[in-house]
């Protein structure tokens, strides 16, 4: 999924899937992230950042 917006105070990011659907993702395990980063997300949690 691709990071669109980050809520740093809550440790969450709004991410978009390839089909355009959006979901809120926990980013505590991969911080820091920035808009545009691609993440591997499982059960609502980003497990690893993917290379650009």
């Amino acid at each position: 999924m691709q990071v669109e917006r980050i809520d740093e105070t809550r440790g969450l990011a709004l991410c978009a899937a390839e089909d355009g659907s959006q979901s809120t993702v926990e980013i505590a395990l991969v911080e820091p992230v920035a808009p545009g980063d691609r993440l591997l997300v499982h059960a609502g949690v980003a497990l690893v950042g993917l290379e650009a």
């Binding site: 926990e26 505590a28 395990l29 499982h42 059960a43 609502g44 949690v45 497990l47």
Partner: peptide, 12 residues
């Protein structure tokens, strides 16, 4: 349920 892939999500 799940292996170590899912357990961090539950823990967090």
């Amino acid at each position: 349920i799940g292996f170590e892939t899912t357990a961090p999500s539950t823990a967090l």
